[in-house]
Design a protein around this nucleic acid. Structure first.
Lengths: 183, 183
DNA sequence: ATTATCTATAGATCTATAGATAATGC
DNA sequence: ATTATCTATAGATCTATAGATAATGC
């Protein structure tokens, strides 16, 4: 049964929302086309007529995750607030709605060029965001370098805090990195 | 055809070597039992009689990767040398023989307790190693915090440098993090 | 007799496609 | 007439197991 163009566009949006969440939770290779279609309330056949292949869907879902994740960051914010939120227990425990860079980075080396392109654009976006928040007396080049190193700290602390089995060690990783970046 | 106990132990070692390398290159869920057995020159049936399940093999392979990767770090070394090597282009481009923490961290949240236990032990090992290299005037607690934050920077920079598509951006991530950790 | 290995195969899952269906939109 | 969706299924791959084989080690 066919639906209206409007409804089809909404369905596409639903697939992308479900995909960008599930991919962050279970990994790109850890979630099948079947599970994605079911989470969006469709059959996988329909999903294929919308996207053509899993790879194409992954490309759009990565772009979607990066775009929607960036949009709730206010334009003006103190860097310390950003760091605190990024390295919070809440962010650690909610990968599905959290930073796509941290959730997807390790799978990127094995993704297609199109997918990595979107991911790389996301990295550049966050680096630009952070650069703008660095001390204004620094030269642009220095600000960018500091932003790059800060992003590495943020992502590394979050993925390690999610990886280890021991809650105390996990908290310690977040806390130590917070104080190193803020203080 | 049966082989000697000696030979069986060597075969086991061959499987672990192949597994710890392939898992770092392709991801834990990205490499099948079949591929692991083939890389070790055996059939997957034989692998199952040695390890019982993929999960058990992964546990041992993670422990093996951590143990063999740690052993070529000399006991005495300047921290700067460690950082330089960790954040080198060579390390970035050779995940199969590189740091297992960086290669496997993102899959850990979805691994069994036994696997995560081994990974966590590996994190503690590197933190202890780094703590011992921090400025001796710091209190033990401060040294550990600095080691935790340093490890987060190292891992984050390496996974991001591997993830992005653009060689220049990748080099910049490594360089900026090196200068931030050394200078 | 024990056991490390191999062969064959089961059963699940995964990506993808072909063709039917039925509502939209001209 | 077009097309978004569904049904059914192909073909590949993946984890796992049962039973046979043949060399070891008592």
């Amino acid at each position: 049964m066919r639906v209206s163009k409007e409804q089809a566009a909404k369905n596409r949006e639903r697939i992308l929302n479900a995909a960008s969440r599930l991919m962050r939770e279970r990994g790109i290779s850890g979630v099948g086309v079947d599970a994605l279609a079911e989470a969006a309330g469709m059959t996988h056949g329909s999903l294929y007529s919308q996207f053509g292949s899993k790879e194409r869907l992954v490309e759009e879902a990565v772009a979607h995750a990066i775009a929607t994740n960036g949009q709730d960051v206010p334009k003006v914010f103190p860097l310390g607030d950003y760091v605190s939120e990024y390295l919070s227990a809440a962010h650690r425990d909610e990968p599905g709605s959290g930073c796509p860079l941290a959730a997807l980075c390790c799978e990127m080396p094995r993704q297609s060029g199109g997918v990595r392109e979107r991911f790389t654009a996301g990295v550049r976006g966050v680096v630009a965001l952070l650069s703008g928040r660095m001390e204004s007396q620094l030269k642009p080049r220095q600000r960018e370098d500091k932003a790059l190193a800060t992003l590495a700290s943020l992502v590394g602390a979050l993925v390690l805090a999610r990886a280890v089995n021991d809650p105390k060690l996990s908290d310690d990783i977040l806390r130590a990195t917070r104080s190193r970046l803020s203080g």
